[in-house]
């Protein structure tokens, strides 16, 4: 019998079947669309209706891209859950044993899952961010100054918004590798994005100014802004820093996966 071996490609195909054959993934994608588009519509409509009474300072620093993509700050939890469940559901159901019996090389398994998650989430998140941006500009048009994707800096901000959401999905996956329990992962993920900023907010002003720019959600805002907000990193620096966070979490998660008993 010609025995074809297990390869990165064959495991990636297998993980792709697994990823799209459960309802949690489909629901997560639907929620991502609803939150990003829905909240984007609410925010842009509200800005349009108050534009004429807005003060000149607000108008001067107005960013037509990041305001239209405000819904991503809620959709980030949906993508985090998609990433987390991609691995924690294997532990809660026990199917991790079946998976690892079929694919004993644990690094190969983790890489395949990352490829499936990164590619599929990047497609979904870019589509949803571009659609939300276009919808926002359509709502603004005639009243609020609009921008177009023809501008390099606008295109960069919209695309990096999708990259931000994709990276958070992978961060959720990394937490899943480390903690192996859905509830624990989702708590930690939410804490990182919501509680850490509150804690930093309670620190002295000078510390806030120095450290709040390192929060993942602050990096996200920097990535999708056309000009860097006050006390924040530039878009590319922020993107690079978030990649470093995600790679560090993945390194810990993959090391634990390789070492621990399944």
């Amino acid at each position: 019998m010609t025995s074809k071996p297990v390869t990165l490609l064959s495991v990636t195909k297998s993980e792709w079947i697994k990823f799209r054959s459960v309802r949690s993934t489909i629901m997560g994608v639907v929620v991502t669309f609803v939150l990003t588009l829905g909240l984007g519509a609410l925010i842009t409509v509200a800005i349009r209706s108050h534009w004429n009474v807005a003060d000149p300072g607000t108008k001067l620093t107005f960013d037509a891209v990041s305001t239209s993509l405000g819904g991503t700050l809620f959709a980030q939890f949906a993508v985090g859950v998609i990433g987390t469940l991609f691995i924690t559901s294997e532990y809660s159901s026990g199917s991790i044993r079946t998976t690892l019996a079929a694919v004993p090389n644990r690094t190969q398994l983790a890489l395949s899952k990352i490829i499936v998650l990164a590619v599929s989430m990047l497609v979904v998140c870019e589509v949803v961010c571009i659609a939300t941006f276009l919808m926002g500009q359509a709502i603004y048009s005639g009243v609020v100054p609009t921008v177009s994707l023809g501008s390099g800096v606008v295109l960069r901000s919209v695309l990096l918004a999708g990259v931000y959401l994709t990276l958070l999905a992978i961060l959720g996956f990394s937490l899943g590798l480390i903690l192996r329990q859905s509830a624990a992962c989702i708590s930690v993920f939410t804490s990182l994005l919501l509680i850490v900023p509150i804690i930093i907010f309670l620190l002295p002003q000078s510390w806030q100014d120095s450290y709040s720019k390192y929060e993942p959600s602050a990096l996200g805002r920097a990535m999708m802004s056309t000009s860097p907000p006050r006390l924040m990193f530039g878009a590319w620096t922020a993107a690079l820093l978030l990649v470093v966070y995600v790679v560090a979490a993945l390194a810990v998660g993959m090391t634990l996966l390789a070492r621990r008993d399944a």
């Binding site: 074809k4 297990v6 079947i17 697994k18 294997e90 159901s93 026990g94 199917s95 044993r97 079946t98």
Partner: peptide
């Protein structure tokens, strides 16, 4: 091997479970 019969993702169909396993080992 059959270790624990219930160790399958409950939301996946039997066919998809087997399709994914088959794909991994070509």
């Amino acid at each position: 091997a059959l270790l624990d019969a219930k160790a399958v993702h409950p939301g996946r169909t039997a066919r998809n479970h087997l399709r994914a396993l088959a794909a991994s080992n070509q």
